[in-house]
Design a protein around this nucleic acid. Structure first.
Lengths: 213, 213
DNA sequence: GCTGAGAATGAACGCGTGTTCATTCTTAGC
DNA sequence: GCTAAGAATGAACACGCGTTCATTCTCAGC
């Protein structure tokens, strides 16, 4: 099958693929371009070249450059939210503490902290102030992420004696993670994934002493 | 004096001012423009119009657009660093705890968290990955800020019984502040300055119990 | 009051951009 | 095997950008 596909493509001048495939190719190319030259310098010519496709194809599948950029942002946020939900909505963990450990592990996994993705993430953050569409996508993604973290923290807080302000702790944790990501992006040699994980765990152990065990 | 200046300007077609004044006018206009339309959409025409000056003046004082942008970033980071140094290098505080309180107060002051400034700050962060010059300015500023915070934390840590990892606590605190700023920028109605201050204080009290008093 | 140095202006230019669309090519349905 | 639908192409276009520079204007030094 694989061989047949390759052979059948070899002699053809054009390859026709489903819309969804083309869209993803272009989105991935856009991510690489943004991380290389920055959101403010990305051009359609560059993206289509990076994708190995013709000049007009982006407009065919996204109509306007702005749409491609928006879909790229959505792609990144959706992927993160799906990954986080897989952990926090799962019923397969034997304890909340274990679930929390898995969350930290995920947040500083290679996949999430990949330079390409984080560059895209913060590039859009940087433009969000002046672009309502970006702002909304970022805010929605953040809200979704915060909600499930708060739920877990509520559970952990209820199980211990010391009272905590769940809202403040959630806000603090989310801010801490964002800040650590930013540091990883700006100075990767000073802030490694391992270091960031340790900082996050220290914060959590301070708030939820029971997880230390 | 004031009257004379105004009167003397009224009839003139052109006003000639020192280079430093023009440069600052243009930098301030650039900041307003970035926060309004985003770093990727700022044009020289827009900036010079916002500054109430002619088209060519930016090139006269900065030569290239890129230089104006770099100087704008430097302006913002320098201002912050000066403000932080004023607190952390001062010998006028009666205790380290008091100094720490002043730091938090400063970091979430109106002046620092002003939407215009924070938009500029994060706009450049977003482009830093692909622009070595931005990256260096941001990294240098961060390093300077971190150094004096670490010094204060070392002092506070030495004064208490419980041992802390000063490096990790400093990294965590800096990341927390960055993350809180980002939240203030992206969702100002959800994360207020007061709330952010409380979150920061909670973090610090967890690490340095003595300051609670 | 003159004058030279240089600050300020804004029209003009060339280039690179996003977008369009006539054309070419592929394939599913018959 | 034919054909219609539509996916893919890339040359062409119009526009807006950063930058230049001839010209105008200001004022300190004499």
């Amino acid at each position: 099958m694989q061989t047949k596909t390759i052979k059948s493509l070899a002699g053809k001048k054009r390859v026709i693929l489903p819309r969804a495939v083309r869209r993803q190719q272009l989105i991935l190319a856009t991510m690489r371009c943004i991380s290389e030259v920055g959101l403010s310098s990305v051009t359609m010519a560059q993206v289509t070249k990076e994708a190995g496709l013709s000049r007009g194809i982006a407009n065919l599948h996204f109509e306007r450059k702005e749409n491609l950029l928006i879909e790229t942002l959505r792609f990144v946020t959706d992927e993160y939210n799906r990954g986080q939900a897989e952990i926090l909505d799962a019923a397969t963990f034997s304890s909340a503490a274990e679930q929390l450990a898995a969350l930290v592990q995920f947040q500083f996994s290679r996949s999430v902290t990949e330079a390409t993705k984080m560059a895209v993430w913060f590039a859009f953050y940087g433009e969000a102030t002046s672009r309502p569409t970006y702002q909304k996508i970022c805010a929605d993604s953040d809200a979704r992420a915060a909600r499930s973290v708060r739920a877990l923290f509520t559970q952990l807080g209820a199980a211990q004696e010391a009272l905590i302000d769940v809202g403040a702790v959630t806000d603090g944790y989310i801010a801490l993670i964002d800040g650590l990501w930013l540091n990883i992006l700006l100075a990767p040699q000073k802030m490694t994934r391992a270091k960031a994980k340790r900082v996050a765990r220290t914060f959590l152990e301070g708030v939820f002493p029971s997880i230390k065990a």
